[in-house]
Nucleic acid binder design. Structure first.
Length: 662
RNA sequence: GCCACUGUGGCUUAGUAGGUAGAGCAGCUGAUUUGUAAUCAGCAGGUCGGGGGUUCAAAUCCCUCCAGUGGCUCCA
């Protein structure tokens, strides 16, 4: 790669060597992107960035975001642009303006096309901080950015009357931005702060070629067809009744079959990996949630109620306290550790109105939950064991799927958000863990009563390190996200994208040193002393509903045989085959094959047409020929048709179910 | 919770200068007895999300509440 790279002399434009190549839109000089027109300050070897390159597309989209803001400013001169970054599959721009409607959006897009055709040069200018502040004096967003990021000088990009504070690079002129589309309007808050100004966020996308744009738009339309809400309705899997139970899904018989299969699969795996299944109630008195700490952080998000006798209860938002209560009930020796409880625990969380949606964010969902109590020397091995469960699960359900592993760690600059031990700077006493933001009184040392405390991160650091090394030794690639930890500990989260490109957390593995302290849990160690166990929270599916979402969208509802609610959809050719069809249906049922008999007076074609929405694994057509030969005509997912003896079909089906064949 | 959009029979949907709702599919009835993505005919089904208002008159205009969708925030 790095043989003789073309180079430019001091004082020359970086793009000099590529002047004739329109598909070169920027250059890379020792790993840094630059505009073609930028003047080199020294002799440097330059690498061309083509429009179609990943980086080229990003530059294009970034320029398209500028073009969007440019068009908006032309139409609405009072608008105040904030920022317009590139995102996956496109870009957006946050602008302080009146929310545009569909017509406005089209008007903006037309203006963008107009500006594109005008081939407006996009010019980079360098200004010092004072000049910048002057240029953007009527735009507080830009001023904030200039104050925060600029030391002496920085760049702006000018295209006709529109100037944006930006480090670039950009395409040379607006005519490069040709194949774009504004997608939708949303809203956001400045700096993501809900107390800050409301901004309009306009999403759009741009591509190097018309073909790519068209493909993208087509895929987007098709993605909507794969939406689990649509598939679920077609397959008759679940029911939403927004008047009676907003955010509270119900499962039909067919939907329940899939749930049961998922649960059975995990139940077997739990057994294999040493998890004992327990059952806990769906509600507890509020004292439980006060002890666990959930109450203080989440009481606005819990279903809380008070009975006439004055007792207050809450539907459980988590299963851990229940499992803790079972653990507490008996004495544990270090020899018994780890103690591992699992439960398909249905939890209830009052998700705020705008946050609920489909099965990805319902107000009740079932977690394939597990809580483990162990000695510190068992942590790494146990995390590895859970990672193994996860690996088996994902391999079973998905052939290839884009998985992201996050290590969610504490944000040490905000200790008030977490349960943390505090050390006294005066007497050195290590105080019990607490969450500062839930304390009304000033924090005082429990030993010397002074308030000179500092957070002690040792438990957090320890837990984080154990998670990190377990990931590394499992050979998993991951990224760390400060501030994403749970209030009681760091966690490994696994994210998978839905069909609309939104990322959802499925698997989660969390180390918790604090809940055991909060509940005074212990086991008797080798020295016959009480010792606090470490807790591990884990869910492999995460929630059954979310997992189902990914399964359905990923497979377009064409679930593998062992998960299909209807495995065989029986269609008699005419009612002369009714009794034979009945007989076969009954026989399959007796073998535990899930079968549906469509005995209406319709043509085979029509029955197939109407039956397809249920995504049965097989259609079994039964006519006179089949009846005479003791056969069924089997039409599979690929629409291949094959006649089989009934017993052969049964045998084969059962074998494939057993093997969990895809 | 915030911003925007949307809300017509089980599903998809027509219905904008405001004049008390049309259709297809599904359902039911009858005819047809069918060979792998829709046989024909008929019947029934809607207080147009709820409430309030403007008007002689509202699915259509206004207010408000509820819900859904897309974002934001949040997500133990």
């Amino acid at each position: 790669m790095s043989e003789t790279q073309p180079s430019v002399e001091k004082g020359e434009k970086y793009g000099k060597l590529f002047a004739s190549q329109r598909d070169v839109i920027a250059v890379k000089v020792s790993g840094v992107l630059h505009d073609l027109d930028e003047i080199s300050e020294e002799t440097a070897s330059v690498e061309p960035v083509f429009l179609k390159d990943r980086e080229g597309v990003n530059i294009l989209r970034h320029s398209a975001a500028h073009l969007l803001a440019h068009a908006v400013m032309e139409i609405y001169p009072d608008a105040k642009p904030n920022a317009g970054p590139v995102v996956e599959n496109g870009f957006y721009y946050d602008i302080k303006m009146d929310p545009p409607d569909q017509d406005d959006l089209e008007r903006i897009e037309r203006k963008m096309r107009e500006l594109s055709q005008k081939k407006v040069p996009i010019v980079r200018e360098v200004h010092n901080k004072e000049e910048l502040q002057k240029m953007f004096r009527d735009n507080r967003f830009k001023i904030d950015k200039i104050r925060e990021h600029v030391e002496k000088e920085s760049t702006v990009y000018r295209q006709a009357n529109f100037v944006d504070f930006c480090t670039g690079p950009h395409v040379p002129d607006t005519s490069y931005i040709k194949f774009f589309k504004l997608l939708n309007v949303a809203s956001s808050n400045y700096k993501g702060d809900i107390k800050e100004e409301k901004l309009v966020r306009i999403y759009g996308t741009a591509f190097p070629s018309e073909k790519e744009l068209k493909t993208f738009l087509k895929n987007r339309e098709e993605a909507a067809m794969r939406d689990h809400r649509k598939i679920g309705a077609e397959m008759d899997l679940f029911v939403f009744n927004s008047e009676r139970a907003p955010g509270l899904p119900m499962y039909t018989a067919r939907g329940s079959i899939i749930r049961s299969e998922l649960i059975n699969f995990m139940r077997e795996m739990n057994t294999k990996f040493g998890w004992e299944e327990v059952t806990t109630p769906h509600l507890f008195k509020d004292i439980m949630w006060k002890t666990s700490g959930h109450y203080y952080k989440y009481k606005d998000d819990m279903f809380l109620f008070t009975l006439p006798d004055g007792d207050s209860y809450a539907l459980k938002p988590m299963n851990c306290p229940g499992h803790i209560t079972i653990y507490e009930n008996s004495a544990h020796s270090y020899r018994d550790m780890p103690v591992k409880f699992s439960e398909f625990g249905t939890v209830y969380r009052y998700e705020k109105s705008g946050e609920v949606g489909g099965l990805t964010r319902p107000r009740t969902f079932t977690v394939d939950d597990g809580h483990e109590f162990m000695r510190t020397d068992q942590i790494e091995g146990e995390i590895g064991s859970v990672l193994e469960m996860m690996k088996i699960t994902f391999e079973t359900f998905f052939e290839n799927i884009d998985v992201r592993y996050d290590l969610s760690v504490i944000d040490k600059s905000k200790p008030e958000n977490y349960l943390i031990s505090y050390k006294c700077r005066d007497c050195g006493f290590l105080n019990e863990p607490r969450r500062m933001s839930s304390e009304s009184d000033e924090l005082k040392c429990q030993s010397c009563a002074k308030n000179n405390l500092e957070p002690d991160f040792s438990l957090w650091d320890n837990a984080t390190e154990q998670l990190r090394s377990a990931l590394i030794s499992s050979g998993i690639k991951f990224e760390e996200y400060p501030g994403e930890a749970a209030f009681y500990g760091p966690k490994i989260d696994v994210h998978i994208k839905d069909v609309l490109g939104r990322s959802w957390q499925l698997t989660t593995i969390q180390i918790d040193f604090f809940m055991p302290i909060a509940f005074n849990l212990y086991f008797i160690n080798r020295e016959s002393q009480k010792e606090t166990p470490v807790m591990l929270h884990r869910a492999i599916y995460g929630s059954i509903e979310r997992f189902l979402v990914i399964l359905l969208e990923n497979s377009y509802g064409k679930l593998p045989l062992w998960l299909s609610p209807i495995q065989a959809y029986v269609i008699p050719l005419s009612n002369q085959q009714d009794s034979y069809a009945q007989e076969i249906t009954q026989k399959l049922k007796e073998k535990n094959i899930r079968v549906y008999l469509d005995s209406g007076n319709e043509s085979v074609s029509k029955k197939i047409k109407l039956g397809r929405r249920f995504r049965p694994f097989y259609f079994l057509i039964i006519g006179q020929r089949e009846q005479e030969g003791g056969e069924v005509s089997v039409r599979d997912r690929t629409d291949k048709i094959q006649n089989l003896k009934v017993d052969d079909f049964i045998e084969r089906t059962l074998e494939n179910v057993r093997k969990k064949m895809p």
